[in-house]
């Protein structure tokens, strides 16, 4: 029994599959958010030094992680679309961009709201904040570049180049706190050593990160379905989908 690896590479089969998965991911996102928020406010204790202001961590860190993670995913899909010329890959890259931009914006704003009470300033041209702001411009650049070019396939290629070149910025953001050691503190949670956070605080943050992840999958898949239909409206499968709908 040989596996057909490319079965879901074609929009016609991926469209119904995504349709079934989307409600599941929305439900997971909702449940995880409720559990995460409960832990964040009713289980996690007051912080010894920061008091209650630290509770912004439960959305700031998940949003920042998602902003970097989604950009890498976007660059990967865009690169795949460029190399393999697969339409669905480029559609996934374009479906992810707005959600990534939203999380980058949220990371910057919640960071500023956290910085004011604890550092005494909304903004600082610090290595981490500046590279995250550049990430926001990269997202906006990708979205406007792909929207500006009429021919969809050429827009995918141009966007892929920008996304791939911009990908170098993500490790810079991640390591900026170590390399430049400016205002923003180092990683409390890292892949190399045990997290330097209280258990319940860490648990709340990780659950909120999972919720953000589920949300991103649901939104990106929904947007991908719309892009698929839009691009392939004159194909047989799209006509069929439209007839069922109307």
């Amino acid at each position: 029994m040989s596996i057909n690896w490319f079965k879901y590479a074609s929009p016609a089969t991926f469209y119904p599959l995504a349709g079934k998965l989307i409600p599941l991911f929305y439900a997971l996102a909702a449940i995880l958010t409720v559990v995460g928020l409960y832990i964040s406010f009713f289980v996690a204790p007051t912080d010894a030094t920061q008091g209650e202001a630290y509770r912004i961590i439960f959305i700031h860190v998940p949003a920042a992680w998602m902003s970097m993670f989604i950009y890498l995913l976007m660059a990967m899909w865009a690169g795949l679309g460029l190399v393999l010329n697969t339409r669905l890959s480029s559609i996934m890259a374009q479906a992810l961009a707005p959600t990534g931009a939203m999380f980058t914006f949220v990371a910057l704003i919640t960071g500023a709201f956290w910085g004011k009470p604890t550092w005494g300033t909304w903004w600082e041209w610090d290595a981490r904040m500046t590279s995250e702001l550049i990430l926001l411009f990269l997202y906006i650049g990708y979205m406007s570049l792909t929207a500006a070019i009429d021919d969809v396939r050429r827009a995918d290629k141009a966007g892929a180049i920008l996304a791939l070149v911009g990908a170098v910025n993500v490790p810079i953001i991640y390591f900026s706190v170590k390399w430049w050691n400016t205002l923003h503190q180092g990683a409390s949670v890292s892949l190399t050593r045990a997290p330097s956070m209280a258990k319940t605080m860490l648990l709340g943050m990780l659950i909120m990160a999972l919720a953000a992840w589920m949300y991103s999958i649901a939104v990106a898949l929904s947007r991908a379905r719309l892009l698929m239909l839009e691009r392939e409206k004159s194909t047989a499968w799209a006509q069929e989908v439209l007839e069922q709908k109307s």
Partner: peptide, 12 residues
């Protein structure tokens, strides 16, 4: 929120 309500609820 320990005097930080504006910042915490503002960001949420």
């Amino acid at each position: 929120m320990g005097g930080r309500g504006f910042y915490v609820w503002g960001s949420y």
